[in-house]
Write a protein that binds this DNA or RNA. Structure first.
Length: 311
DNA sequence: AAAGGCAGCAACCGCACAAGA
DNA sequence: ATCTTGTGCGGTTGCTGCCTT
């Protein structure tokens, strides 16, 4: 038996909102606010809608200062940069783009930006990647030839054959790790190597290629039309590699001690935090907001992570 | 001009989490 | 400590309008 529905599905209207409903919703909120309870809202406002639907309509469409229409090149860059770094966490990305909603950005990514990236993907045979010698305990890394265009850089990871991005891992913690420290203890599989990531896939620690941000490597073009995404061994922080190594070798040697927080809370977590600090580095992302603010967003949205990683 | 295909986007769904009882 | 409820989020669906044949 699942949880009770949030509203009486039989008696609520679904589908597109009419102008009358819109104005009813808007007028009520302008007069009385949301009342802090969206579930009760429709009844108070005299709307035959689910509370969640009202909330969505307000947040995504009716609320003041919502920006609709074309995304700028700068917005494109921010979305790409953040997507590469934190994945499909649209609410966080939206927080960096004033006036844009998470839904808007998600739609834009899925319908346009992703295709933009895919569109100029060179054939696989033209993308032979050099492999760097690996250090002991550290898996080999590969670099990409540097290019001046953000789209080329990102799209080089897109496979026309599999219709998915592959061989690229953002420098990021696995999303399930970020959102819940306990999942780490119960789901060792998050450490396994995987070969593809798309929006819906969880992030795993880097295994092969790394897309890092800022530092040296590719640079913005003169007109600023590209971003500072760059990748390659030179940009990979030793700490990050060590962190990866720490995870993989540690798991092999003693999975229990790596995963059992209850009995090992303390030293293990301290090491985790240290490695995590080094690993979780945004570099010099050219955003309107300070990196600290981005990190703050992530911290504030992931209490599990926050509970043991101190910056 | 009509039909089919496709892209864009608004809205829905279900899950996870947090807060409060 | 457990259960219930509201909220927020990301993934998905389906409607609508435009484009192509």
């Amino acid at each position: 038996m699942g949880r009770a529905p949030c509203c009486d599905k039989a008696n609520v209207k679904k589908g597109p909102w009419s102008p009358e409903e819109d104005s009813k919703l808007k007028e009520y909120i302008e007069k009385y606010g949301t009342g802090g309870n969206w579930i009760a809202f429709p009844q108070k406002a005299g709307l035959k809608r689910c509370g969640k639907s009202c909330r969505l309509r307000w947040l995504n469409y009716l609320r003041p200062n919502i920006k609709h229409g074309e995304f700028s090149e700068e917005e494109d860059r921010i979305i790409c940069t953040l997507f590469a770094n934190i994945g499909s966490r649209w609410s966080i990305i939206a927080a960096q783009l004033p006036g844009r909603t998470d839904n808007d950005i998600k739609n834009y990514w899925n319908t346009k930006l992703k295709k933009k990236l895919m569109g100029i993907n060179p054939p696989a045979h033209e993308r032979k990647l050099p492999t760097f010698a690996s250090s002991p305990g550290i898996p080999p890394f590969q670099s990409q030839p540097l290019s001046s265009s953000l789209y080329e850089e990102c799209s080089s990871y897109y496979s026309q054959t599999t219709k998915s991005f592959s061989g690229l891992e953002a420098i990021s913690f696995p999303s399930n790790y970020l959102s819940s420290s306990s999942s780490l203890a119960t789901n060792p599989s998050i450490f396994q190597t995987h070969e593809s990531w798309v929006g819906s896939q969880p992030y795993y620690p880097v295994t092969e290629n790394v897309l890092t941000l800022g530092s040296e490597g590719s640079r913005s073009s003169d007109d600023g039309s590209s971003t500072q995404i760059s990748y390659g061994r030179d940009n990979i922080k030793q700490e990050g590699m060590a962190f990866q190594s720490y995870i993989s070798t540690g798991l092999e040697e003693n999975p229990k001690s790596m995963l059992n927080y209850d009995s090992n809370r303390g030293e293990n977590l301290k090491q985790w935090a240290e490695k995590a600090n080094a690993y979780f580095d945004f570099g010099e992302i050219p955003l309107h907001y300070a990196l600290d603010e981005v990190k703050q967003l992530i911290r504030s949205s992931n209490s599990g992570f926050n509970s043991f990683v101190q910056y």
